[in-house]
Design a protein around this nucleic acid. Sequence first.
DNA 1: GACCAGGCACATC
DNA 2: GATGTGCATGGT
Length: 214
Amino acid sequence: MDLRDIYSRLLSYFGPQGWWPAETPYEVVVGAILTQNTSWRNVERAIDNLRRYNLLDEEKILDTSIEVLKDLIRVAGFYNIKSRRLKNITEYIVKNYTSTEGLKKCNKDLYNLREELLSIKGVGRETADTILLYSLERPIFVVDNYTRRILSRWGIVEENLDYDRIRTLFESNIPRDIEIYKEYHALIVQLGKTFCRKRRPRCEECPLMKICRS
DNA sequence: GACCAGGCACATC
DNA sequence: GATGTGCATGGT
């Protein structure tokens, strides 16, 4: 059972996930910041608030006061730091590339782009890779806590293997294909939510060769 | 009431 | 490099 087999089993069990749920590249950026250690349900509510006021736009966010921003994203938690992080990354995008579309079209090398994103306060590896893959359409695999938990419960990796070691493990064992990267990460999150939560693992119900066996 | 959720920065050793 | 802590709301 290798990472390719797991992918096809997940795909046939859950079906295509069609990630990332967003209408524009910038909306992916906003979601990537807001979802840091936060349930997607609450992130959706925060994004709906921003959408209601027509603020899902780089310039609009820059024109919005930090206090108003805090109020609109409050439901997503950590609103003091997340409002600042939204401003930070948006300032970076607008200053250097005019818009997220502009950033997407730039022809910089993948890893240079990654280093740039990582230099922004509030953007760590998972957030950077999420933006690279789902917003900028670059081939990089996204690792999250579900990925780590599932792989370690399954006995493929040690409990606290380094982020980039896990990322390259996937990248070197599955086809270098943006659509597969997108779908695979989404499927892992779906598997995690369904059968590999910390609180109620439901491992015994996991249909995928007891992947979640603890 | 405790624990968790599609992390990150910062301090400290 | 590894480990610990604050950040904060809403669901179970």
